[in-house]
Design a protein around this nucleic acid. Sequence first.
DNA 1: TTTCATTTGTACGTATGTATT
DNA 2: TAATACATACGTACAAATGAA
Lengths: 94, 94
Amino acid sequence: MDPDAEIDHEAPTPVYQQLAGILRARIERGDWAPNRQIPSEPQLVQTYGLARETTRKAIRVLIEDGLVVTVPGRGTFVAAADDSDATSASESNE
Amino acid sequence: MDPDAEIDHEAPTPVYQQLAGILRARIERGDWAPNRQIPSEPQLVQTYGLARETTRKAIRVLIEDGLVVTVPGRGTFVAAADDSDATSASESNE
DNA sequence: TTTCATTTGTACGTATGTATT
DNA sequence: TAATACATACGTACAAATGAA
């Protein structure tokens, strides 16, 4: 998924799934580091021109994927990347 | 949870969680047998006097608990009680 | 302590689309 | 074709949690 893709309301894929894919791509690209806060719901609403419920639905997908966690009253944060990604053969830096 | 409880809008527990608890109790009581259809969303809306989204939210809880499954265009059904999994830890929320 | 702004959570309303019968 | 039922999407409003002033 292109992290710079735009929402296509005509596409067969539901809008909330599109947004989830975009945000997932942006996290993987490093737009927000682990433990960093992603834009608030109102900000996402403004950026992508969606309703808040649609935005929340996309975030819920990311939560279920374990990519982000939300804290009431504070915000939504990129999950700490403490899982095992064993695809790369060499990792030398801490 | 009392399967005949009524929704209390003043209670601290969210309404959708109350409804989920009531429906769970009714399923466990046997109001609807496995593979049987539970009332449709409009019927639940009418019975409990809630908004449709609130009703859907309660049903989503039951889906995540593996208690029911929904089929677009048909309805929501009590899951077959062939529990061979180990993940369902939702019970006795009395 | 109180107040305020920010952010997420809950609840309701409405409209339209999709799938099945 | 039509009716039924769930899915998606937008809108509004208020409550609760957090942190800062």
